[in-house]
Amino acid sequence: MSYFREIIDGGWSLVEGMRVTVRRLFQPLVTVQYPRKHIRMSSAYRGHIELKVFKETGTHNCIACGTCERMCPSGVIKVQGVKEQAKSPKVATHYVIDFTRCSLCGLCVETCPTQTLEYSKEYDLVGETRWDGVIDLMARLETRRAKTV
């Protein structure tokens, strides 16, 4: 009798399996068509670093102290700044990173004395040459400010 029991039980388990898959068939998709659609990354996502825009000043707070540049284990960051007049604070004018060598350790973000660095949510970083990995953060800041104005 266990022979028929097994056939019926086994057959029923197969039906159960088919029910699971047919329900999946009509459920909404969970994948995203990669280059066609952009999604908002979660706040925990670490992209390359980015200069924050502060509401009070309308620009970044980078004083070109060079802490991030010295802290970076891979030598990714190049930052330059000028003093407009004598005794005025230094303001960064150039901020370039070579993202191809970045290990996303986040030391630059943590050491920044003015907290002007953050992680961007950029994930679509396909390029044709290695120079596409070199990102000018000042230029990105300018385009972002141009968009908000």
Partner: peptide
């Protein structure tokens, strides 16, 4: 298509 949709992809 069937395989994709069963696995929740298009």
């Amino acid at each position: 298509k069937v395989a994709g949709h069963i696995q929740l992809r298009p």
